[in-house]
């Protein structure tokens, strides 16, 4: 995935808009508006009536989104299930219709696939997953922005700070440094003292990680996708576990926090590894 074109951006935004009005979102939006002033105006949405649900907007959105790989994979399976359901109907009483109160397997699977509640009122499993409401193309775009940010952060950190700094503490008397750097009164002086390494490195890591997280917020704002919360497979899996099944409250939130700390730790470990390797080279040559 690369930078979005105008048309792609318009399409993504359109799909995002439509999805906000699906899954019962339309009525809850009206409820939100009327709730603020305790109004008694009607909050039933034209989008939440079953007749409309069948044609718009989720199905139209899905049909307009061939990017997702899962669609092409599941389509033959759904066709097969459709045939099986038809055969099942013919086998029992010769007609394919079923009782309206009984949700059939196909509609349940369809609703899970689309992330909408089935017409019969059975809550779909797709609803439990936050991933269902996020478009694959938007996720790809988020990944692209995130990877670009990571690459730039590493480049700037390593090339423009860590390398010169390590060079400075291992080659304090080199000719490449300006003469004022070696006067005792210079602000530069404490930097070249190897005994200050831990303090300087910790300060640098603190600053760089703070800047990284600030930039990450910008990326989240741009792509409108929360990193880890919406992208991590483990979080996605945990969110499928119904609340109360495991005796830990807000398991998903806790997992996101742990993953964030792990992310931070892994950045620190990567930088320490880089420092050790570079120091090894500098000491050797």
């Amino acid at each position: 995935m690369s930078e979005l074109t105008d048309a792609e951006k318009r399409r993504l935004l359109r799909e995002r808009r439509q999805k906000k009005f699906s899954n019962g979102g339309a009525s809850s939006r009206l409820n939100k508006i009327t709730g603020q002033v305790s109004s008694h105006l009607n909050t039933e949405s034209p989008l939440d009536s079953p007749s409309v649900e069948k044609t718009t907007p989720v199905e139209s959105v899905r049909s307009a989104t061939p990017i997702s790989g899962e669609d092409s994979n599941t389509a033959p399976q759904l066709d097969l299930l459709k045939q099986l359901a038809a055969m099942q109907g013919q086998g029992t009483d010769g007609s394919s219709s079923q009782e309206p109160s009984t949700p059939d397997l196909l509609s349940l699977l369809n609703s899970m696939n689309a992330g909408v509640p089935s017409a019969e009122g059975v809550p779909s499993l797709g609803q439990a997953s936050p991933m269902a409401s996020i478009n694959q193309a938007a996720l790809d775009y988020h990944d692209y922005l995130l990877n670009r940010l990571k690459a730039w952060t590493i480049l700037v950190k390593w090339i423009f700070f860590l390398l010169p700094y390590l060079f400075l503490i291992t080659r304090p008397n080199g000719t490449v440094w300006p003469s004022y750097a070696f006067t005792q009164s210079s602000w530069f002086a404490p930097l070249r003292n190897p005994s200050n390494f831990t303090r300087v490195f910790a300060t640098f890591e603190f600053l760089s990680i703070s800047i990284y997280y600030q930039l990450l917020k910008n990326v989240e704002h741009k792509s409108k996708i929360k990193n880890l919360q919406d992208t991590n497979k483990l979080v996605k899996l945990i969110s499928l576990v119904p609340e109360g099944m495991i005796p830990i409250s807000n398991l998903r939130g806790k997992l996101v926090t742990v993953l964030q700390y792990w992310d931070l730790l892994s950045m620190l470990i990567t930088d320490i590894s880089f420092v050790l390797i570079v120091l090894g080279f500098l000491m050797y040559f």
Partner: peptide, 9 residues
Amino acid sequence: ERLIQELIS
């Protein structure tokens, strides 16, 4: 909001 929902429908 109602207008937008109708238009989307």
